[in-house]
């Protein structure tokens, strides 16, 4: 059996058909060239080469579902209180679609809190919820520290920027831990929420776009990783202290955090699993395309760092 005969046939199919269905002929003119041959000769599901970098959950680190869910709850509580304060500040232009949009997002965050911590009954006591169902004690009372953001109460544009940062951080945080969840049911719930964070993030970014920040597309481009504080760190990586925390405590409830495996990819990352997306997929793509086509994860130690969401917890 001649392995390369197979490759030649596949390349022929590709060049013949793809070229007609995609206006970017250049993509496919490269088929059959060295890069594509290498790609095709790669081991099926080239998993080992796909990710060189290990991080928590991958290498058999014991993960408690209740801690993952409680971690998610901490972020949802932060977001829910953030939107409550944003609405209370009264800066959303009255009579614009922004009012309904922010209210809708706030409602979603409340629904996520209910799902994780249980719905509040008479007297405000929460019962049930995914954290308890998995043997944990849900966080409660986590608040957004508005005083950490200059002009938060008076600047609507600042409020929207913080909303964008929190939503984008939420996307990164769910991505960082959801894959640890084993069993389709919990993972499915986490992914449904993860997708909502992405919808929220896209909408908030589009709101900013419509307010004249035309660099704020619904997806994360390279420039976001160069944003000044307090937004920038959400798109970068790394932690402030030399030693990463191994747990997170709030209101007497403590969760274990997975070991920190060194800086996660930044959002301006253009390389996936050692493959330069700009040049090694058979055509040339811009850095913005390469970066925006993949959202990157953040590990818990990074999300909870004082320069990111951790610094906004009160």
């Amino acid at each position: 059996m001649n392995f390369f005969q197979i490759i030649d046939q596949l390349a022929e199919v590709d060049a013949d058909l793809l070229g007609r269905f995609d206006s970017r002929r250049a993509v496919f003119n490269a088929l059959g060239t060295g890069a594509k041959r290498t790609a095709m000769a790669a081991t099926p599901l080239f998993v080992s080469a796909l990710f060189n970098k290990a991080y928590a959950g991958e290498t058999g680190i014991k993960t408690d579902a209740k801690d993952v869910l409680n971690y998610a709850l901490a972020l949802e509580l932060l977001e829910a209180d953030f939107y409550a304060q944003l609405i209370a500040a009264g800066q959303i232009p009255a009579g614009t679609p922004a009012v309904a949009a922010i209210n809708k997002i706030k409602t979603h965050e409340d629904q996520h809190v209910d799902l994780l911590a249980g719905a509040a009954g008479m007297g405000g006591t929460r019962t049930g919820g995914a954290v308890r169902a998995n043997g944990g004690t849900p966080f409660s009372g986590i608040r957004f520290n508005a005083s950490a953001i200059p002009n938060f109460g008076t600047s609507y544009d600042t409020q929207l920027l913080v909303a964008q940062v929190l939503e984008d951080t939420g996307v990164r945080a769910y991505k960082g831990r959801a894959p640890e969840l084993l069993g389709t049911e919990l993972l499915t719930v986490a992914l449904k929420i993860h997708s909502m964070e992405a919808r929220h993030a896209a909408h908030v970014r589009y709101m900013r776009y419509n307010r004249g920040v035309t660099t704020s597309k619904p997806w994360i481009t390279v420039a976001d990783s160069a944003l000044p504080n307090p937004a920038g760190p959400a798109y970068k990586n790394g932690i402030t202290p030399a030693t990463a925390p191994t747990s997170f405590t709030y209101g007497g409830v403590t969760i274990a955090l997975p070991p920190y495996a060194g800086p996660s990819p930044r959002e301006d990352n253009t390389t996936q699993s050692g493959v330069d997306i700009r040049t090694q997929l058979g055509a040339t793509y811009s850095a913005d395309d390469a970066a925006a086509s993949f959202d990157e994860y953040l590990q818990a130690a990074e999300v909870l760092d004082a320069m990111r969401a951790g610094g906004l917890v009160m």
């Binding site: 599901l45 998993v47 796909l50 990710f51 959950g57 991958e58 996307v171 769910y174 991505k175 959801a178 894959p179 640890e180 069993g183 389709t184 993972l187 499915t188 992914l191 449904k192 993860h194 997708s195 909502m196 964070e197 992405a198 919808r199 929220h200 993030a201 896209a202 909408h203 589009y206 619904p218 997806w219 996936q272 699993s273 925006a292 086509s293 993949f294 959202d295 990157e296 994860y297």
Partner: peptide, 30 residues
Amino acid sequence: LVGALPLFSTFQLRVLLAKMLSVEGRHAAL
């Protein structure tokens, strides 16, 4: 993708697809 991703047993593939899933969510919202 929400439905398919949990069916993958390989952690790295779940991560790779999750990286695409949220971008898909952004597209849908826009």
